[in-house]
Design a binder for these strands. Structure first.
Lengths: 190, 190
DNA sequence: CCTATTTTACATCATTTGTTGCAAAATACG
DNA sequence: CGTATTTTGCAACAAATGATGTAAAATAGG
């Protein structure tokens, strides 16, 4: 009985992920979301709620994207997988418009919103927990001592490297940090 | 002949440094600057210019503050000084209102403004160059090989650690990264 | 075909916020 | 004491922008 939607929800969400990823929360205007999705403001608000609700849905999509990568690379969970993550992170992208040169949406979000929104903070914490667990499982699988601390350290190093990417606007900026990360992990083995 | 100012310029600037440091550029409103300095908007604009000009002056003050610390700690320039920097960075502050728990104004600024303002970006680059040179001089003084890369790496690690501070809102968040930084530098010696 | 229900498009509203105009106030010099 | 010049405070302005009201449009079921 109702009039059907003219757009695909998940497709629209993915487009909005890119907009927020590239511009952050504040700098993303409703007009930009209109242009990116082809949907009017009213339609967006009708389907996804207000700006914060949209952003939370965007963060959820982003988290699932990352979860997919993690599940793929950390199968089986190994420290080598962590090394691959760091190496891949610092790999140069040919396309200057590549969104990965914007760093990580979660890292950037924390800097922008800080502790302003509890729900956003919660989403970021969940995201961090996901990575922490991946690193922890890898540490356990390779039998290193004190996997808790190792995981925490790797998480910090990852976020630091992503900060560098955002700062310089290029994934190559993380190369020095990635290099030492790989060497450090290597020294943990055996 | 002119009417004299009711406030001290450098004192007002230092107070504004704290406001921007704690809240960032966008979240800092003219009203907050009024409240912090006790000067009206008109007086601030009259003395320092518009918001971007104010911010640039604030960045300059911040840079000089850091330069003072660097000159003190890196005298003489030694890798041990770099180690002390990292250790001090991760030291817990008793006061939860301590502004150092907000991370580094320069790091936070890059995340917020990105490449929006060329002048701001230039100020950040100058700030980074200052630290890079300190690390470089220390590397040269201790005779390590490839001081250029070492300096770049230490700079990246420092910014990564400061990202962690901002993220978690506490200097203790940088402890794991500071620990590995100290160990890594230690391994360079001899 | 008619109707109920949702979507859509357009416009408008309300709020925030950086900026500026204007007149009064204050001081140093002649 | 008078005046020139700057500062100050109040207010209003202008722009950006997220949100919303309203009516037309579209579709599925009766």
């Amino acid at each position: 009985m109702p009039r059907p939607r003219k757009f695909d929800e998940t497709e629209a969400l993915q487009k909005m992920v890119m907009v927020f990823w590239r511009n952050g929360f504040d700098a993303t205007t409703t007009r930009m979301l209109e242009e990116a999705t082809g949907i009017g403001v009213r339609g967006i608000a009708n389907a996804f709620g207000d700006k914060e609700e949209i952003f939370l849905k965007v963060l959820a999509v982003y988290t699932e994207m990352a979860r997919g990568v993690i599940n793929q690379v950390f199968d089986p969970p190994r420290l080598e997988a962590a090394q691959m993550m760091f190496q891949g992170l610092a790999q140069a992208t040919d396309d200057p418009e590549d969104v990965t040169n914007c760093g990580c949406l979660m890292v950037n979000t924390v800097f922008e919103l800080g502790r302003a929104s509890p729900k956003v903070r919660e989403a970021v914490e969940d995201y961090r927990a996901m990575w922490r667990e991946a690193f922890h499982a890898a540490s356990v699988a390779d039998g290193v001592s004190d996997p808790d601390s190792r995981a925490e350290f790797l998480l910090g190093l990852l976020w630091g490297a992503l900060s560098q990417v955002r700062l310089m606007g290029s994934t190559t900026a993380a190369a020095p940090m990635a290099k030492v990360a790989v060497e450090t992990i290597e020294s943990w083995k055996s």
